[in-house]
Every structure is written in structure tokens, then in C-alpha cells.
């Protein structure tokens, strides 16, 4: 469904990605793990069109989207839930969710999707008229995911959804991620919480200083000495 080949991305003269290639198949939950500054967010931003690679190609459903504008990419069915949630703090929860579906027409479909998102995150229902900035960190993350779902994506890009959240909330978020996968969404998950990521994923890529260094199933990686030492802290 998504295929990335030899991606080189720079911030000015700083190189962030140094020839990354990987792929995500339909229905899969693929995790991208790596330490701080490895290039995980850069990868997602390049897929969603926020960054243009200097070299390399992003293929989505066999179409080249390397130079497609972010709003077109959303229209094609990719939704990127960014690192740090980036919800609109001055807008209400309802408005945030509506913006997730900004390209769609108001109607029964959208109302149904709104109900569905609110059933995934019932706490948001009580907060609909509250401004996003007043939510707790966990609630903001739920809103960010819910908002990303409102565009009805086929491929969901999640950037560190567990960042800075209490263990119980992390548990809840991952439960939702698994549920989304069961409902047929394809997910590319960036995580530093490697334990949770390995538990949820079908396949894993390890990224280090802009390059993929390891790949395999969670079981394979769990018993890899390098992964054990660097990411699982054993």
C-alpha cells in the first residue's frame, strides 16, 4: 500500500534521512522505532507531504506522491496524527473534529463518523463544547487521533501517541490502536515506547541516524541482542 524507496531528506544543509526504504502492506500495523533524532518524524512528514525529499520516492497505492501537496495527500486517504498532538487549543473539541473532516461535506456520513469517534473516546463527548486547550494531555491525544480519523483515512500515520502520558492512558491508546487495526485500518506507528510498539505491531523497522538498520517481526526483534540492549533496556 505504501512503499518508500531511498529517501534522502534535508533540513537546509542538515541531513535527517539518509536513504530510507521500507513498505507497509494493506491491513498491517507497522512500527517504526528508534531513538531521539533518528529521523522517525521526518519520515512521516515526508510521507504526508510536509517535507520534500532531495532524493527518493514515496509510492502510495502505486501512485507517486513524492511531490503531492499535503491537502491532496489527505484526499488520497492518508492521515497524519503529528508528534505533540498539535490540536487547535483555541477551538472547541467539536471544531477540532470537524476540521479533521474539512474536505468532506457535512451530512449523515460525517455525523456517523463523529459518533464512531466519540464511541472510541467517550470522554470527548463530555468535552465537545470545551476548547481543546483545556483538555488533559491524554484527552488531547485522544482528540488528535479522533481528529485524524475524521478524514476516513485508509492509512493512518501515528507519531508517538504515547508521548508524556500516564501508563493507564498509554494502555487505553494502544487498545484503540489495536481496535483500529482490527477494523481494517492500515497503520504506520512511530514509537519510543518500544515494549508497547512490539506488542501491537505486525512488523517493525528500526531507524538509526536516518537509516533503517534492522527489520523483522516483533518476536524476532525481541530476541535481537542489539534491540534488547538499546531499546528494551535489558
Amino acid at each position: 500500500m505504501l512503499k518508500i524507496a531511498d529517501l534522502h531528506v534535508y533540513y537546509g544543509s542538515i541531513r535527517a534521512l539518509n536513504g530510507i526504504s521500507f513498505q507497509v502492506n494493506e491491513g498491517e500495523l507497522v512500527a517504526l522505532i528508534g531513538s531521539n533524532g533518528a529521523g522517525k518524524s521526518t519520515t512521516l512528514k515526508t510521507i504526508s507531504g510536509l517535507l520534500r525529499p532531495r532524493q527518493g520516492i514515496v509510492l502510495y497505492e502505486d501512485a507517486d506522491i513524492t511531490r503531492t501537496a499535503p491537502d491532496r495527500i489527505v484526499a488520497l486517504g492518508i492521515s497524519h496524527c503529528p508528534e505533540g498532538r498539535r490540536i487547535f487549543g483555541g477551538l472547541t473539541v467539536r471544531e477540532n473534529l470537524r476540521l479533521g473532516a474539512v474536505q468532506r461535506r457535512q451530512g449523515a456520513d460525517m455525523a456517523a463518523d463523529m459518533d464512531w469517534v466519540l464511541s472510541l473516546f467517550p470522554i470527548l463527548k463530555e468535552r465537545l463544547s470545551q476548547s481543546g486547550g483545556t483538555l488533559s494531555g491524554g484527552e488531547q491525544q485522544m482528540l488528535a487521533i479522533g481528529r485524524a480519523l475524521m478524514s476516513r483515512p485508509k492509512l493512518l500515520l501515528l507519531d508517538e501517541p504515547s508521548l508524556g502520558l500516564a501508563p493507564l492512558v498509554v494502555e487505553h491508546i494502544f487498545q484503540i490502536i489495536r481496535q483500529l487495526k482490527q477494523q481494517g485500518k492500515t497503520i504506520l506507528l512511530v514509537e519510543q515506547n518500544v515494549h508497547q510498539a512490539l506488542d501491537a505491531a505486525d512488523r517493525v523497522y528500526v531507524i538509526e541516524t536516518g537509516q533503517i538498520t534492522l527489520t523483522g517481526t516483533p518476536d524476532e526483534l525481541k530476541h535481537n541482542p542489539q534491540v534488547e540492549q538499546s531499546y528494551l533496556g535489558r
Binding site: D71, V74, L99, V102, R147, S151
Partner: peptide
Amino acid sequence: VPGLSMRAAAEDLTAAQLMGI
């Protein structure tokens, strides 16, 4: 909706792009 998009863009231009605006 265009007005809402404008307020969203004013708050966070990058996030607005990710919404498909």
C-alpha cells in the same frame, strides 16, 4: 467551514495542512 479553516490556520499552519486544508 472556510472560516473555521482560517482560524485553524491562524493557530497552527502545519496542523491545518495535515487536516487537508
